[in-house]
Nucleic acid binder design. Structure first.
Length: 313
DNA sequence: AAGCTCGACAACCGCGTAAGT
DNA sequence: TACTTACGCGGTTGTCGAGCT
């Protein structure tokens, strides 16, 4: 005998998730953590299959997800990585920790593919990805401050973090637990998800969503430093980031060939972060991988040539 | 105002692989 | 080792809202 069946198809609800279902799922994950999806419907009573629960969590409810408003830099990353990796959305998503593979895939299909097509009609097809990505990077670096900060564009977070925070506010008010406390003698592991959500409560006065998370969060969550790396973007940091990415690209090759589950991504992320910290510390010049060289070349090229590129959008 | 079209995105489906028994 | 199922991924579909006629 193998594993018991995931869930019988009879009585399984389909279609959009309701806020009530979201609360149930989030509550469960706060208590048990993501994983063991098979147990979710049976434990919570949700009339959803385990697959649907996992998808809902990873694509929508998971804290730290940034939604909508892809930045030019993100666009450039996606275009580059798509050209490099093909439609390996999960792999591409590892370079954009705040974006889900589904989000990236949708954005590619609805926006970038069209842009590329449009662009290809006006230039060499073989070079379209390259140039379009360069342009995107260029727009990013031309940005006055070259910084993207939480709160300055609060709408970016509104759809996921704020929604779930709202859902949880009521739930937490009725809960005796406090964030990151250990009242019942259980391990911190039992409460860490709770802590994550607490730190996403929106600031209604400033219309900002606080999205701080503790370090070393497991189960597929990027660490704070990664978020920082995405929110605060400048040219210097960009190069460091690219170095890190390139290192991750190399280091993750083996693991990605084996398959990329959430724990694999965490390990990858840790490696990314560790490498990034190392780069910061010694400011060394590690050997460049193909990806790194390409990205750095583009980054440099855009400085020289971005201003000359004709607007295509 | 009603109907139609299109875009965006959430969710589903099917398949390959990993993992449990 | 073989069998069975969970999990993760990529492709596709369904739904909803905005804009247009």
């Amino acid at each position: 005998m193998g594993r018991p069946p995931c869930c019988d198809k009879v009585g399984i609800k389909k279609g959009p998730w309701t806020p009530e279902e979201d609360i149930i799922l989030v509550s469960y994950i706060q208590e048990h953590g993501p994983g063991n999806w098979r147990a979710v419907p049976t434990t919570t009573g949700l009339l959803r299959c385990s697959k649907s629960c996992r998808l809902r969590w990873t694509n929508y409810l998971r804290p730290g997800i940034k939604r909508g408003n892809f930045t030019p830099h993100e666009e450039g990353m996606i275009i580059h990585l798509q050209a490099l990796l093909g439609n390996k959305w999960a792999a591409i998503a590892t370079y954009l920790p705040q974006r889900t593979d589904n989000d990236i895939k949708n954005y590619w299909n609805t926006h970038l593919k069209k842009k590329l097509k449009k662009f290809q009609s006006g230039s060499e097809a073989a070079d379209a990805n390259h140039q379009l990505a360069s342009r995107s990077y260029g727009e990013s670096s031309k940005n006055e401050s070259s910084c993207i900060r939480i709160g300055e564009n609060s709408s970016v977070y509104a759809s996921s973090a704020e929604n779930i925070s709202r859902l949880l506010e009521g739930w937490m008010r009725s809960s005796p637990l406090q964030p990151n406390t250990n009242l019942n003698g259980t391990s911190n592991h039992d409460n860490k998800y709770y802590g994550d959500f607490v730190k996403m409560i929106p600031n209604h006065e400033s219309n900002e969503v606080q999205c701080y998370r503790p370090q070393n969060v497991e189960h597929g969550m990027p660490c704070d430093h990664d978020l920082e790396g995405m929110f605060v973007f400048d040219h210097h940091h960009h190069h460091q980031r690219l170095n890190s990415m390139a290192a991750c690209d190399k280091s993750s090759c083996d693991s990605s060939q084996k398959g990329s589950d959430s724990s694999g991504l965490i390990e990858q992320d840790k490696v990314c972060f560790e490498h990034e910290e190392k780069v910061k510390m010694d400011n060394a010049n590690p050997p460049l991988s193909f990806l790194e060289k390409w990205l750095l070349d583009e980054s440099a090229a855009q400085v020289e040539g971005a201003m000359e590129l004709p607007p295509i959008f």
